[in-house]
Amino acid sequence: MLGPPPTFGARTALSLAIVAAIAVFACGRAPDGGVEGAGGAPLDLEGDHEHYLRSVEGARLELVEPGTDGAWREIRGAGRVVRLAAPPERIASRTLATDEILLEIAEPERIVLLSPFAGDPQFSASADKAKRLGRVGGFSTEELLAASPDLVFAAGFNTQETLAQLEAAGVPVVVLLNHEDLAAIERNIRTVGFATGRDREAERLIESMWLRLDEARVRAGSKAEGLRVVHWSGGVVLGSRTVFDDALRYLGAVNLAAENGLEGWPRISAEQVVIWDPDVIFTDSYAAGDVAPGALDGTRAARLGNLESLDGRDMAAISHHVAGMVERLADALVRASERIETAGRQNPVTATE
């Protein structure tokens, strides 16, 4: 049974918000220690979790060339049609994923503004590139409009008010809704390439991403097969319909939260994790203070030393940089498997408990 969660750390909430493409406009610390959403309102993680899971239903976009009414290209889906008259020359991004993709495939002179997360090395694997570009913006819609973009990339958790302001100003907005698995990341890279006219560069980036993913899976080999895994940090577990779950399945491991019917990032107690008794537990390296000392000691993972951590960049990896997260995940699973094998040789009873 799922018990009441322990205190939910603000840093963990922020990370998961980014992972789910929630925190694409304004996330800061609220006066009560929670997390703020756009407009200063506290971010309701459970409510936004349900909203996100609903929002990605039928979220696949249709890429059309040429578009109707003489348009150069057209992007359709999720009840929206974006017509581009010509390749955009002033591109802005309000999501970390599209920040990272644009920095990889677009000419620097065409990028007029990136999201505030682009230059944050805690979450962005492209922070150095973003800082060199020097066009990292803030949270203000007014600042975005002042940059005079002719194309903006956003996500489903940008507020409807923000999207309406941009569209009222005549700015085309491509909204990427789905960030929940490896295939969705591939589609998003392709969509960014299509919308910017950088199709070949996008395809090369996709090819490079899958090459690294395949190499990680080969490296993990049979050692990852069947390992029972949980990602639990600050009272939040990662279930199905998350990149973490898809990455585990890609490597052959089992996500116990998904196996037990949990979707997204629901809250559960440490006691529930102990009941599941995973082989490996992943936490967030920057949120260690959110886990009570000894809370996971009753698990097989803790007894064997299979407590692993992922950093903020791994947890925010919903672009091609997901390959780095999967590589580190594969290496951690191999280490965990080897500890289990060693324990089995030294003490067969402990290894199988």
Rank of each mutant, 00 (worst) to 15 (best):
L45M: 14
I91T: 11
E100N: 09
L84G: 09
D44P: 03
F25Y: 09
L45V: 15
L61N: 05
L43T: 04
A30D: 13
I18E: 11
A71V: 06
K129N: 09
H51N: 09
E57F: 08
W72M: 11
S93P: 08
R54V: 02
L102K: 13
G33S: 06
E109G: 06
V112R: 04
G58T: 08
G34I: 01
V56N: 04
L96V: 08
I18H: 03
V19L: 14
C27E: 12
D32E: 14
D128H: 09
V81H: 01
V64G: 02
A85F: 00
V64Q: 10
R94W: 06
L102S: 13
G47S: 13
R90F: 00
L114S: 08
G39F: 06
A21S: 14
R135N: 01
I22T: 04
G34C: 01
A118Y: 08
R60K: 14
L133Q: 10
L43H: 02
A59P: 10
V56H: 11
A125V: 00
F25P: 00
I105E: 04
S115L: 03
G70R: 07
F117Y: 12
A41C: 03
L114M: 12
G79Y: 07
F117R: 13
A86S: 12
A71T: 06
L96F: 05
V81M: 01
